[in-house]
Write a protein that binds this DNA or RNA. Structure first.
Lengths: 222, 222
DNA sequence: CGTCACATTTTGATTATTCAAAATTACATC
DNA sequence: GATGTAATTTTGAATAATCAAAATGTGACG
């Protein structure tokens, strides 16, 4: 029985939910899952019980869910497809990075393995998508690089933007128009707790100040 | 209310069904529709009544269905998407023409207008898909070329294959391996009623004999 | 240890799509 | 005009996915 788009979305949401878990935690709370999928909590409970019956998740009532090995394999496959497709839409089709998410969201469930193989080849087996998010490998492994956010990286030191962890189109356009896309080199000049902001020196030594919330979504390498 | 994939498929099937109607006929019989969609006859009846309520089709019980202007517009849009995507998969992704149908069948319902605009542009606003099937224009018009089949074209006269009206993968592979794809020049040497076959002179003067049924699926221009 | 707030689950219902099989209708033929 | 076959419609039911709102469990805190 091949998984429906709905099942694939649940698995993907649990997969990324697990990655955002505070350490110590091993289960994704039902409320968080329902929130991520934009569905009513009761719906999530019903569906997760079905996923449990299929052996795709471990479900502890009132505590949360976690993927089994089988569930993880499927989830990684979907996330791989999503991220490859996003990169493909930007690189080959020429779409902007802020307009590819919805297409990828749909295509990930329907295109053939053949299609995915071909674009993976065309793109040269890429490791990250346009937002810098790592692309799971064909065998389901997710390459992990240790990155710092603009809130934690060293001051007055050139760093390279590696990843932007927010898919919101308006945010992405802001990042792009300020030359803060992955690959660009910047420097943190100061952080201010009180004003909740970070001052940056960017492209062409241009200065700008962004909020801490936004700064936390920009991941960099030294 | 935007149409579901299911509705789009019904409309598309009625649209192509209308094109295959014997002259005089204006309605697609329910049985034919159900057959084309691979669903039970009763299901077609139910759905067509719903399409009628939405104003997308004219439905005459026991006689058949036909698209309204609104239904035609939607159907042409879906068919346009399907054929553009097929060409895109062959031309850009590098898939074989016999393996693109299923992907196109799914993608046609989910990709954005932006995606379609971009590939239309990349492909240079093409008029036909890899099988030679005409691509409806963005405003819903279907360019129509008068073509003859290998059963009706003149004998001993060079003609160019323009269209192959069968999506079956095995048939398409046969056509390809015998150099009978759209664009190739061939000549009909003889037709034989009794043996129900057609003898051709193809690429490099290679001779071959194919059945009348197959010959009727190859459309050519003089 | 009782209570309150909040998260989670349960319940009852709805929508879309489908099927199989029974009932009905249309049409050609006798 | 009766009749039989084939197409079509009706009926009753199933599945997947969802919601709103009621019921229940959990954990924190006084």
């Amino acid at each position: 029985m091949l998984p429906s788009s709905t099942v694939e979305n649940y698995l993907k949401a649990i997969y990324v939910g697990e990655m955002h878990l505070a350490d110590g935690q091993t289960l994704v709370p039902m409320g968080q899952l329902a929130g991520a999928l934009g569905i009513a909590p009761g719906t999530a409970t019903t569906m997760v019980k079905a996923l449990f019956e299929s052996g795709l998740v471990v479900y502890e009532p009132y505590n949360g869910v976690r993927l089994t090995a089988a569930g993880q394999k499927l989830a990684a496959r979907v996330l791989r497809r999503h991220r490859l497709i996003e990169l493909f839409l930007v690189q080959v089709i020429g779409m902007n990075w802020d307009e590819v998410h919805d297409d990828a969201e749909q295509m990930e469930h329907v295109v053939s393995d053949r299609f995915i193989e071909r674009i993976d080849e065309m793109l040269g087996q890429p490791e990250v998508d346009p937002h810098g998010d790592p692309i799971p490998t064909a065998d389901g492994r997710l390459p992990h690089r240790a990155l710092e956010t603009l809130l934690t990286c060293p001051l007055h030191t050139p760093v390279t933007v590696a990843r932007v962890t927010d898919q919101d189109a308006a945010f992405l356009r802001f990042i792009e128009s300020n030359n803060l896309k992955p690959g660009q080199t910047i420097e943190v000049e100061a952080r201010d707790e009180v004003s909740d902001s970070v001052r940056l020196k960017g492209h062409n030594d241009e200065r700008m100040t962004i909020g801490a919330r936004a700064a936390s979504k920009l991941l960099v390498t030294g």
